[in-house]
């Protein structure tokens, strides 16, 4: 029981790591990025390429992947998302969904549909014991990364000038513009950060399990559930949401594995029904 909860918290950290970019984009730009999961998968493929191309271990690949992902995110915001967000409620959904289709199938043409995984070496296969529990280093690292990423995002938004501009823009882009905030670069940065965290999460997922070009869909669903359960647009809420998902999954699995994922989806639906959610 306690083991299940501890493992659930660790698993939940991974969900939160994927979800925080989604949460950020929604909180600031009101953008539900359907392609978020696919961008995470792209991160994993980039790390795979770095490993195959330069023999770089995953940690070093980060140095390459993260700035690239940031750039891609900013570029997507300036070219696609910005225009889509002006086009009403349907346009962003359709545009990001279209983007998701493009990414998936580009990955299929480039890397085939065969499942891949990242080789994290001995570290990725090792575990350690705490109070009779065997925990995986990799999962623990994933959880710690989630907390660090969410914490730094929180500090960034709460304590810095950039954060103030982001919050002002999120509250009212027009007012922010009038008071001298340059909205476009702010949004571009936020989209960049969002995609960079997605890529980071994708690399962790690639280390923990296998991925293929179509993995993005389920990743998005779990991330979205974490965001909704944790309260839309709240970063710490997203972490809580991820943990709730992870723990639910582990506890239900104690009883029967078959119901674990189903329970998570049903919980999400329950939250939707019980709680008023307004965009």
């Amino acid at each position: 029981m306690i083991a299940a909860i501890v493992q659930g918290v660790l698993v939940g950290g991974t969900y939160a790591l994927v979800a925080c970019g989604l949460s950020l984009a929604f909180g600031v730009m009101r953008l539900v990025n359907i392609a978020h999961g696919d961008l995470a998968v792209c991160g994993a493929y980039l790390a795979l390429m770095a490993a195959a191309g330069f023999g770089a271990p995953p940690v070093l690949a980060l140095v390459l992947v993260l700035p690239l992902a940031f750039g891609v995110g900013a570029l997507l915001q300036l070219t696609l998302f910005e225009r889509a967000l002006r086009g009403g409620e349907l346009a962003p959904v359709l545009v990001t969904f279209g983007l998701s289709v493009v990414i998936q199938n580009l990955l299929v043409t480039g890397a085939s549909a065969n499942p891949r995984s990242l080789d994290g070496g001995a570290f990725a296969l090792a575990g350690f014991e705490v109070g009779g529990l065997t925990l995986s280093w990799l999962r623990t690292a994933g959880f710690a990364t989630a907390v660090v990423v969410l914490g730094s995002l929180h500090l960034l938004l709460a304590r810095t000038g950039f954060g103030r501009r982001v919050r002002a823009t999120a509250d009212d882009p027009e007012a922010a513009r009038l008071s001298g905030v340059r909205v476009r670069p702010v949004f571009a940065c936020v989209a960049g950060i969002s995609v960079a965290t997605a890529a980071l999460a994708g690399m962790f997922l690639g280390l923990m399990s296998t991925f293929d070009p179509y993995s993005g869909g389920l990743i998005l669903i779990f991330a979205f559930e974490a965001v909704v359960i944790g309260g839309l647009g709240s970063l710490w809420g997203t972490l809580a949401g991820g943990i709730v998902l992870g723990v639910t999954q582990q506890l239900v699995a104690l009883w029967d594995v078959r119901f674990a994922v189903l329970a998570v989806h049903v919980l999400f639906f329950g939250v939707l029904v019980v709680r008023p959610v307004r965009a």
């Binding site: 582990q250 699995a253 594995v257 078959r258 994922v261």
Partner: peptide, 20 residues
């Protein structure tokens, strides 16, 4: 028998716990 898992499952922690 920890129960039937879904193809494509990413996390086997609970199954491993049951085996242990």
């Amino acid at each position: 028998d920890p129960g039937a898992y879904e193809d494509g499952t990413q996390d086997y922690t609970s199954i491993l716990a049951a085996f242990a």
